[in-house]
Design a protein around this nucleic acid. Structure first.
Lengths: 119, 119
DNA sequence: AGAATACTTAAGCACATGCTTAAGCAATCG
DNA sequence: CGATTGCTTAAGCATGTGCTTAAGTATTCT
């Protein structure tokens, strides 16, 4: 219990692998079985399943077993978190430019001077 | 030369580490030196520098050395690629629902039936 | 029932990652 | 000049990741 990791760690890590992204890609076109996901992937079935475990752990993909076939489907809402994190940093960065503009044209006291900010 | 990896691999991998995200966070508020980045990070300076290398390799952060200080700044445009990839899959997934709707209300031949699509 | 299908588990191995400490080096400061 | 500051390199090590093959298990087909 010493090491509980941020959901974003798991999410971004899941997206960092090309095989997993291609699986997501396939699922974005519609749900599929494990072997359908494996088919285009030049690797063994167990390897695919391990990737699938990673995707499930991140929440991007959910699965349920019907008979002997496991059906996998995308949970696109989970991608929101990642998209939002990125969007937020971009917003912050844009705001930084605002402050710099403020500094250049008006009120130096409104900017964090002497903290490496003015380069 | 056998193993050139997708920029998205590197980008998402860079984002998958909490220390690196906190560095990006700091830089989204304005550029900083290496030791300023290291300050809040309960780890050695060399460790921070290795994270910085990863960030630079991904293109998210650029640095230049002035005197004995290295100044680091965010390249937020690089985040576009990641954001776009996510947005694209979400769009595809939404489109999948369109096709399903088409199937339910109108033209069955327009949908991929019998390929695991109808569950 | 027996054979085929569709996963699933387990074990092992090569290589990558995320640190560490110990030195080293160039740019100021006193 | 010699000392301090700010980074940089190198080496080593524990753990994690991405595969593999071999051997299951549960369903469905014949």
């Amino acid at each position: 219990m010493l090491k509980q990791s941020d959901p974003l760690d798991v999410l971004f890590a899941a997206l960092a692998d090309p095989s997993r992204r291609s699986m997501i890609d396939r699922l974005s076109r519609g749900s599929a079985s494990v072997s359908e996901l494996a088919a285009p992937l030049d690797m063994s079935l167990p390897a695919v399943q391990q990737h699938l475990n990673v995707l499930e752990a991140s929440g991007i993909v959910s699965t349920r077993k019907v008979g002997r076939v496991r059906s996998c489907s995308l949970e696109p809402d989970v991608l929101n978190q990642a998209q939002q994190w990125i969007a937020d940093r971009r917003t912050l960065w844009a705001h930084r430019l605002d402050r710099l503009g403020m500094f250049l044209t008006e009120d130096p006291s409104a900017v964090g001077i002497g903290k490496g900010e003015t380069k």
